Amino acid sequence: MANFDFAHWQNRIDELRANNHVPGASLAVLVNDEIHELASGILHRGTGVRVTTDSVFQVGSITKIHTATMVMKLVESGELDLDAPVIDVLPEFETADKIATKTITIRQLLSHTSGLTCDFTHDTGRGDDCLALYIEASKNIALDCPPGRTISYSSVGYNVLGRIIEVVTGQTWDNALKDRLCTPLGLNRTVTLPEDVLRFRSAIGHIGLPGQEPEPCPTWNPLPRSSGPYGGVLCASAADIVQLAKMHVDGGIASDGTHFLKSETVSAMQTREVNCVDKWTFSSDGWGLGWALYDWDGVFGFGHDGATIGQYGFLRVAPESGVAIVLLTNGGGAQQLYSSLFKELLNELAGIKMRDSFAPPKKTISVDFKPFIGSYKREGIVI
């Protein structure tokens, strides 16, 4: 396995970040059992504060790995049954489909096969009852498909999992995250509430047109506390995310040598539950229990992406090589930065050839969009 050339990769992230108009980025790389940390750019174009390796970014749906790991810890201890209907634990759980309500399982929520739709952002306030109120408010949301039929990536489902954690542990999701995941694994720069984020150098999202320098978002994070378990509020350093991934690479062993999860539990999370029919939309080949799964020309990998308003995160793991990479960004052409940088890193450190990202066709296709212009509405969403 190649050694990590710090100076080379610092130069590459600086160059690629600037070329793609990304204001700031933090990179952490696990290789040869060592975590390397790099920082580039600024946290806020209005203030000019520099990104440092201990800066925290909003990680978006990468949070689903935190939630899934906590759920699997409860399964491992016998407090939850993966294949039990959700209503056995959460009697108030309800969907617009009465039959689905009775049959949706915890396993299906973890693997995005419940049929529940993706997005329903609903502000239920800052109180400790925010998730309980969210579950009540989501009862009328139609399913995308029958449970177990196919993949239906669902943030709603992960909020249900967050509420299940609360019911089983007697803690809020935020406190359970701190006490049952972050503290045992030494994730000292992973927080959820704004008052905790203020203790650290934190990034603000930037938005703008492609190819131009983006501008800071008008607010730091417009997403409510009730979006926590699916990825609306958690902030972390890149190294903290790699530290969590390292535990999964090491078969459940934490950095202090203790067994956080059993190896069978870790393996179950990385076992394919469903194939992704549309690999471009999901950027993966399948899904396990929390993890997105990849097949890089026969080399197995897992990971997750995340996005909030103007902040984007990318996590990829090549377990056979013991390599894990996390990139956290705050706007601009983050997808292009990720694609170029990870392609080089995975090739150099793990011998992996990533497929090219989705791109426009070489020959322009003419499509008349006029008949489709208008407003599209459903529960919680207006496009």
Rank of each mutant, 00 (worst) to 15 (best):
N330K: 08
A25F: 02
I381A: 11
F300S: 05
T67N: 11
I381E: 13
E379V: 09
C182F: 05
G374F: 07
Y153F: 05
P146Y: 05
G298L: 04
Q311K: 06
A292P: 00
G231R: 12
Q336N: 11
W220N: 10
I13D: 04
T95W: 03
S357V: 02
T364C: 04
F120Y: 15
T308E: 00
D305P: 00
T308L: 06
L349N: 08
K363P: 02
D83Y: 12
V266D: 03
A236W: 03
I65Y: 05
L133Y: 07
D119Y: 15
T219E: 15
W9R: 05
S61G: 02
K343W: 01
L143H: 05
K139P: 00
L315D: 06
P319Y: 10
G157C: 10
G310S: 01
F93R: 07
N275F: 05
L177R: 06
L110K: 14
L345E: 03
G46P: 02
L177H: 10
C130E: 07
K73V: 05
A137P: 01
D144S: 13
Q270K: 11
V71F: 08
H66N: 08
T121A: 02
L38M: 14
A142R: 13
N3K: 13
L109A: 12
I383F: 11
K178Y: 04
L337I: 12
I207C: 06
L27I: 07
H36P: 04
D305N: 11
V31G: 02
H304V: 01
I87Q: 12
E344H: 09
I241K: 00
W287V: 08
T183I: 12
S114R: 10
G208D: 02
I253V: 15
V323G: 06
G60D: 08
S111D: 09
S267T: 15
H259W: 07
V75C: 13
L185R: 06
S61F: 02
Y158F: 15
G228N: 10
F282G: 00
D129S: 11
P216N: 09
L289A: 11
Q336C: 04
N347A: 15
S138M: 14
L223Q: 08
T117Y: 09
Y376L: 03
A334C: 10
L187R: 00
R199M: 03
A292C: 06
Q243K: 15
F260I: 06
S357D: 15
Q212W: 07
P218Y: 01
L109T: 08
L133P: 05
Q58R: 13
Q270M: 11
R107A: 14
Y153P: 04
F260P: 07
T172A: 01
R225N: 08
V326L: 11
N159W: 05
T63A: 12
A7I: 07
I164V: 15
S366T: 06
E15R: 10
I204A: 03
A292Q: 09
I383H: 06
G41S: 03
T67S: 14
G380Y: 05
D368R: 12
A18V: 14
